[in-house]
Nucleic acid binder design. Structure first.
Lengths: 227, 227
DNA sequence: GTATCATTCAAACGTTCGTTTGAAAGCGAG
DNA sequence: CTCGCTTTCAAACGAACGTTTGAATGATAC
């Protein structure tokens, strides 16, 4: 009972963020109520409004806590790659790994809640509420610009229009993988247990995505005939 | 004012389904309330419970109306392909087109609400509520089994484990494309206006997906060295 | 016409929602 | 110990939720 032996292990705000992360993932932003949330965090019902202002502000705080560092990590990795090979063009594979690496490392963090956040993030890409999609868009914007430029340089033979589409497809692949809807089991035979070995998953995703990026252009054969 | 001049243009149940489709897409299943829904449909508040039993049952009806015919269409197309070339193995491209074609044709249906449903469906794959993901899973199960078998036959050089992953990735690509989160605009330069030409989109998706399916195996070089 | 059934309607049900309030408790500085 | 400030607490707010009810209306058959 000595010095602050009774103090809770984590600060109130952190405990709220952790609880919100998990319950937003399980029940969605509207489905997770303030009462569920504060009960899970072990804090008073009014604590969310006191510390964050409103439920909407809490949603934003939940994303900012993880997403801002994650995108900074992505950009740092891209900086590192470009600094290591000045002048030379990067391979698509290297750029892909720089982009998806941060996401996949987060999946492996089962203790600190990173995995929970990954699933939440994967679902947020297709969130109905426009305010949330806009929030995500704003947080990604700077990183997306840099990565788009890197892909354009790395793949000069792919028209930019087509490349934007293929980046869009890559994004869908990553989002769906992060969402990890393990209970859907759309494809019989999927093994959820080895689903989260980040290294293997990164290899698989990189192989799939880089092949898709480099695919022959859809209308190529027609152009050849005409030329 | 003659014979049934005052009768509403559509049956009550259809009008409810149409309104639900749109509002579920815009606000999510929890975010769209019965009062919003019945007001949009121009029917009494009690009509949903009278005709469908409950809100949950309405959600299921919304999906069944479009998803059952869509999956039947997919299977019929696969049947047709296999009947046309008895004994021969299908190309991955043909199987991909059989699977994504029905979805993409629905995107083009802007009058009948098919496009609205496409976006709803794309989002439902990552829906937090377990009951809905299970509902989707049940409705897809028969078709998924057939398509998995077709891909296994068409790609004997790809181990089944890897193939299941790649089908998973394909699914994510399609889901994200269907969701069509046009307001996110994660990638600057995307042109939403030509986004829904189903034929072009089918070509682009098929090129990306088939390249991903046929990608070199991640650990291939290591295996070769050992052999 | 009348009886029968399906459908629509306004009103109310009890519950839960996000937020606010004002007092109580905790706590470091003087 | 007391002051000033931050944080927690129980209670209540009005609003909106999904659902139910019982009467009114519509359509069909005899």
């Amino acid at each position: 009972m000595s010095v602050r032996a009774l103090k809770p292990l984590k600060e109130t705000q952190t405990r709220i963020l952790d609880a919100a992360e998990e319950l937003f993932m399980q029940h969605g932003f509207e489905g997770a109520s303030m009462r569920m949330l504060t009960a899970r965090a072990g804090v008073n019902l009014a604590a969310v409004n006191y510390h964050f202002g409103s439920k909407d502000a809490l949603v934003e705080a939940v994303f900012r806590r993880r997403l801002d560092p994650m995108n900074a990590e992505r950009l740092a990795e891209l900086d590192r790659l470009e600094a290591e090979a000045p002048g030379r063009t990067l391979t698509p594979q290297a750029i892909i790994r720089a982009f998806i690496g941060a996401s996949l490392r987060m999946i492996e963090d089962t203790r600190g809640g990173g995995r929970t956040f990954s699933r939440l993030l994967g679902r947020a890409y297709t969130e109905p509420a426009k305010s949330i999609r806009q929030l995500i868009g704003r947080m990604y914007a700077p990183a997306m610009e840099r990565f788009k430029a890197a892909f354009v340089r790395a793949l000069p033979e792919v028209p930019t229009d087509e490349l934007v589409w293929r980046m869009h497809f890559m994004f869908g692949t990553l989002a769906y993988t992060l969402a990890a809807t393990d209970t859907v089991q759309l494809i019989a035979g999927a093994k959820p247990e080895d689903r989260y070995d980040a290294r293997v998953l990164e290899d698989r995703l990189t192989a799939f995505m880089s092949a898709g990026l480099l695919a022959p252009l859809p209308g190529a054969q027609h152009v050849r005939i005409a030329a």
